[in-house]
Simulated scan of single mutants.
Amino acid sequence: MTLVFWYAEEKSRSVRLKTPSITGMQGGTMDLIEKLNNIARRGQEQVDHIQNEEATKTALVLPFINSLGYDPFDTREVVPEFTADVGTKKGEKVDYAIRADGSISILMECKPLGTNLANVQYNQLYRYFACTDAKFAILTNGFEYRFYSDLDSENKLDTRPFFTFDLEDFNDQDIDELRKFTKPNFDVDAILGTANRLKYTNLAKQAIDEVFRETPEEFVKFIVGKVYEGRQTRQVIEEFTPIIKEAGKAYIKEQVAQRLRGALASNDIDTTQSTASTDSASQEAEPDDDGIITTQEEIDAYNIVRSLLAEQVDVSRIAMRDAKSYCAVLLDDNNRKPICRFHFNAKSVKRVGFFSDKKEDRIDINSVSDLFQHKDQLKATVGEYLE
């Protein structure tokens, strides 16, 4: 079960409450996550108009390069249509070459938005990598960026990336790795020092993820051997398969919730504010009441909501207000922007109120970890307010 515990720990990293930032270029200090989220948002808004490779470069790739601190309009830093003669191949081009410290360090090949990079041949990158000083190569479709090097055989581009960054799905660990490629932090030795471990860690995570999605028979047999003393017949394996699959999901949820409680210990949360008094999310607030008690379950639920929305909005904008009858989670601490409400005071049942057009719809939950199943609803509500 060590692998399961490790997987849960890795999953929980994606919902840490701290937001990393870097020093930007001309615009001064700017949060890298904010830059990347802006690129992704604009890309999603323009997706119907990004219909070829050139549009992908303009709308997504060039802003991405810019977010790393390189000026895409300065050919001393970013060389478009980089050309070199490779063997019998004359005048072949790779889309971009990025100079760091005066020498070509990163090659980049672009494909149209929507291209499945797993099925792409990158012959130009492969050939150019062998005849330039570049130590890294990137293959991208605008949203997904695959980073390659020569970890397996010197001066020969690997067939598998050591790091993949997705603009639509990234966590703090991904940001930490991407930050190494920014202009102020670029250090070949530092990147290569951890690249091999990162490569196989990511491959292992993919394999573990497949275990939980597909639940292969070998894994089921391993767990059954730990918990069942009888003979592992075909019927026994079939009966245990859904049980083990659900047990794995439940274990991960519990581990994530536990780590959120630990994160709370280092974050000062003000839970003494007044709250809205009506179910229609009006501006009237209840008077302060010494009888209001914020429970650990409400705090845990609040932190889960913050973690689920961290990729959409700065978590500092998500506030909690407790009242005698419910505990509210608000955007910008505004009664007009309720995200959800926790109705945990009843001993028999827990309910969560979700909002659409500011109308509350309550559902029963068994534990606060069930909130992970309602991420889309929470994001949709916040999306309404952001629009």
Results as ranks from 00 to 15, higher is better:
residue 244 I to K: 00
residue 301 A to F: 06
residue 276 A to Q: 06
residue 261 R to Y: 08
residue 306 R to C: 03
residue 268 D to A: 14
residue 234 R to I: 15
residue 305 V to C: 03
residue 223 I to T: 05
residue 270 D to I: 05
residue 242 P to E: 07
residue 261 R to W: 11
residue 270 D to Y: 08
residue 291 G to M: 10
residue 254 E to M: 09
residue 262 G to C: 13
residue 259 R to F: 10
residue 227 V to H: 01
residue 251 Y to L: 14
residue 236 V to S: 04
residue 300 D to E: 15
residue 286 E to L: 15
residue 224 V to R: 00
residue 234 R to T: 15
residue 288 D to M: 13
residue 250 A to M: 11
residue 287 P to G: 04
residue 312 Q to A: 06
residue 231 R to P: 08
residue 266 S to Q: 11
residue 290 D to A: 15
residue 297 E to P: 09
residue 232 Q to S: 11
residue 269 I to H: 06
residue 226 K to T: 14
residue 246 E to G: 06
residue 249 K to C: 09
residue 226 K to V: 12
residue 296 Q to V: 11
residue 239 E to L: 15
residue 293 I to Y: 10
residue 269 I to F: 09
residue 245 K to P: 07
residue 299 I to K: 07
residue 302 Y to A: 01
residue 241 T to S: 15
residue 265 A to W: 08
residue 263 A to Y: 10
residue 308 L to H: 03
residue 243 I to W: 02
residue 280 S to T: 11
residue 275 T to I: 06
residue 281 A to L: 02
residue 282 S to W: 00
residue 304 I to H: 10
residue 233 T to N: 02
residue 267 N to R: 11
residue 287 P to R: 06
residue 266 S to N: 13
residue 263 A to F: 08
residue 294 T to I: 13
residue 259 R to C: 05
residue 228 Y to W: 03
residue 253 K to M: 05
residue 226 K to G: 10
residue 298 E to A: 05
residue 268 D to Y: 13
residue 230 G to D: 06
residue 238 E to K: 03
residue 246 E to T: 14
residue 288 D to T: 11
residue 241 T to C: 14
residue 301 A to K: 03
residue 223 I to P: 02
residue 269 I to R: 11
residue 273 Q to S: 15
residue 315 V to S: 04
residue 222 F to D: 14
residue 262 G to V: 14
residue 303 N to D: 08
residue 235 Q to T: 11
residue 300 D to T: 13
residue 287 P to F: 07
residue 309 L to Q: 03
residue 286 E to K: 15
residue 237 I to F: 03
residue 256 V to Q: 08
residue 257 A to M: 10
residue 277 S to V: 13
residue 274 S to K: 11
residue 246 E to P: 05
residue 276 A to Y: 04
residue 249 K to Q: 14
residue 271 T to W: 07
residue 264 L to D: 05
residue 258 Q to S: 14
residue 297 E to A: 14
residue 231 R to L: 14
residue 224 V to W: 00
residue 222 F to L: 13
residue 303 N to F: 13
residue 236 V to F: 05
residue 225 G to S: 04
residue 283 Q to Y: 10
residue 254 E to G: 03
residue 227 V to K: 00
residue 312 Q to Y: 07
residue 299 I to L: 15
residue 293 I to P: 07
residue 253 K to E: 09
residue 304 I to C: 12
residue 265 A to P: 04
residue 265 A to G: 06
residue 263 A to I: 08
residue 231 R to H: 13
residue 308 L to Y: 02
residue 309 L to N: 01
residue 274 S to G: 10
residue 247 A to D: 12
residue 266 S to D: 09
residue 240 F to M: 13
residue 267 N to F: 05
residue 253 K to L: 03
residue 296 Q to I: 12
residue 234 R to C: 11
residue 273 Q to A: 15
residue 261 R to C: 06
residue 248 G to V: 07
residue 299 I to R: 05
residue 275 T to K: 00
